[in-house]
Nucleic acid binder design. Structure first.
Length: 413
RNA sequence: GCGAUCGUAGCUCAGUUGGUUAGAGCGCCGGUUUGUGGUACCGGAGGUCGGGGGUUCGAGACCCCUCGAUCGCCCCA
């Protein structure tokens, strides 16, 4: 806290120890599951021309662009740190000719940036895992993606979350529903919260998940998407839900689950902690663990051919909070140099090298008060402690010392 | 952008209605003890109490400003 030390940027985090282990566990598990479902790995740049995100967001003017980390580079071009994966993936799909691989199942993970007020489970630099299927119009793709998400959460040991599922229908269904909602809420405008009165103009679908008490009485009787679905849209959703049932994915219909952007069609979903669960407590008001949907209109917005796609993303930090503390693995052996002799130090170093060459995680303690070195080793929780002093050596540890240690260091036998 | 709560040692915190040299535990360093084990004891280093201003004989405690953190609202691609 010295005056001269610069502080970290607001909303960034330094992750260490058990938390870092939990973070790594999430990423490692994602990598494993993604291979199981045959999603291919992709890496995209962390920044793009601002246009990539601006157009993907359909020029959703100020509110959204105010939340982007944008800057001009030396050539005067406006660049933006990616606030999401989807737009960059769509751009890469178009500029690299990945159409030839369609339908393409992709997975990635990494940092994202949004200029937001930090709070629990919400940071300015945060990290997500992400999965997309591009160029697949059929509802089986939605099922495949959701099955993977469900599988991942189970592998992470997260059981108290449920898939909340909705359909926004096709373009016409969605528009008709939206118009009906506007009409319905406009009739009671005066009784709505100030926020919702504003939403009525900007983003009427969002009134449906208002937290304000004044809005609650009007929500149950609001128009339902089901009354506006075309036959095709209804059929699409039916295939998705029966596919989920066949795959053993539990889900719950969430009629109020919406997406603000126009390019979303059909399936929209979020995995949300069950009410009163440990996960709900752990996440505070940032309740969505994993969310996504079908975005059949996005790639056209970027100037590409009409290309259906569906995807999801999940915050690694939030998943890590649900996974809980994960201990850092203990060393297979810790070497303690018990005195300050050159002979002991040398033998210790040689033994340390041998252990590591045999793939045994090991470290050495050879500094500080000689009398306390053993205590340090004990505290680090090694399975075995190997000691060296000027005239000898020893080993101690669990009842069964790992035979691999004797293979690496035969003289201990 | 708005609101609430909070900033005392490396970490977690205590500090009585403002009162004299600012404390504990853990961690760190050293010593003694113990000797197949997260032993016990002794000692030490480490703080301009986030920063600035004010009230007062006297401020870590009270007031104002500022910076930062946490949680929530808005937003949520």
């Amino acid at each position: 806290m010295g005056k001269k030390t610069p502080q970290a940027i607001r909303g960034t985090q330094d992750i260490f120890g058990a938390e870092a282990e939990a973070f790594a566990f999430v990423v490692e598990t994602f990598e494993r599951v993604r291979k199981l479902y045959r999603f291919r790995r992709a890496e995209m740049p962390v920044f793009e021309k601002t246009e990539v995100f601006a157009r993907s967001l359909g020029e959703t003017t100020d509110v959204v662009s105010k939340e982007m980390y944008s800057f001009d580079d030396r050539g005067g071009e406006s660049l933006t740190l990616r606030p999401e994966f989807t737009a960059g993936i769509a751009r890469a799909f178009l500029t690299n000719g990945w159409q030839q691989h369609a339908p393409l199942k992709l997975a990635t993970h990494g940092p994202l940036f949004r200029y937001e007020r930090p709070q629990k489970g919400r940071y300015r630099q945060f990290h997500q895992i992400d999965a997309e299927i591009i160029g697949a119009a059929e509802p089986q793709a939605d099922v495949e993606l959701l099955a993977m998400a469900d599988h991942l959460l189970k592998e992470l040991g997260i059981r108290d979350v449920t898939l909340h599922l909705n359909t926004l229908g096709d373009g016409e269904s969605r528009e008709a529903w939206r118009a009906a909602l506007v009409e319905y809420f406009r009739a009671v405008k005066d009784q709505l919260s100030e926020d919702s009165q504003e939403r009525l103009e900007k983003n009427p679908l969002r009134i449906l998940d208002s937290k304000d008490r004044r809005d609650q009485p009007f929500l149950p009787d609001a128009p339902k998407i089901d009354d506006f679905l075309s036959d095709e849209a209804r059929e699409f959703f039916a295939v998705v839900t029966s596919g989920l049932d066949a795959a053993g994915v539990k889900w719950k219909r969430a009629e109020a689950l919406v997406r603000g952007l126009d390019y979303y069609r059909h399936t929209a979903f979020e995995f949300i902690p069950d009410e009163g669960s440990a996960s709900a407590d752990a996440l505070g008001s940032q309740s969505t663990v994993l969310g996504g949907g079908r975005y059949d209109g996005l790639i056209e917005n970027l100037g590409g051919p009409a290309t259906p796609a569906v995807g999801w993303a999940a915050g690694i930090e939030r998943l890590a909070m649900l996974v809980g503390e994960r201990a850092e693995p203990a060393a297979a052996a810790i070497i303690v140099v018990e005195d300050n002799s050159q002979a002991a130090l040398r033998q210790g170093m040689e033994a340390l090298t041998a252990l590591r060459n045999h793939n045994l995680p090991a470290e050495m303690i050879a500094t500080g008060s000689p009398r306390k070195r053993r205590d340090k080793a004990v505290k680090k929780g090694a399975a075995s402690i190997i000691t060296f002093h000027e005239t000898g050596h020893g080993i101690s540890g669990d009842d069964d010392i790992d035979p691999a240690i004797f293979e690496a260091l035969p003289f201990l036998r």
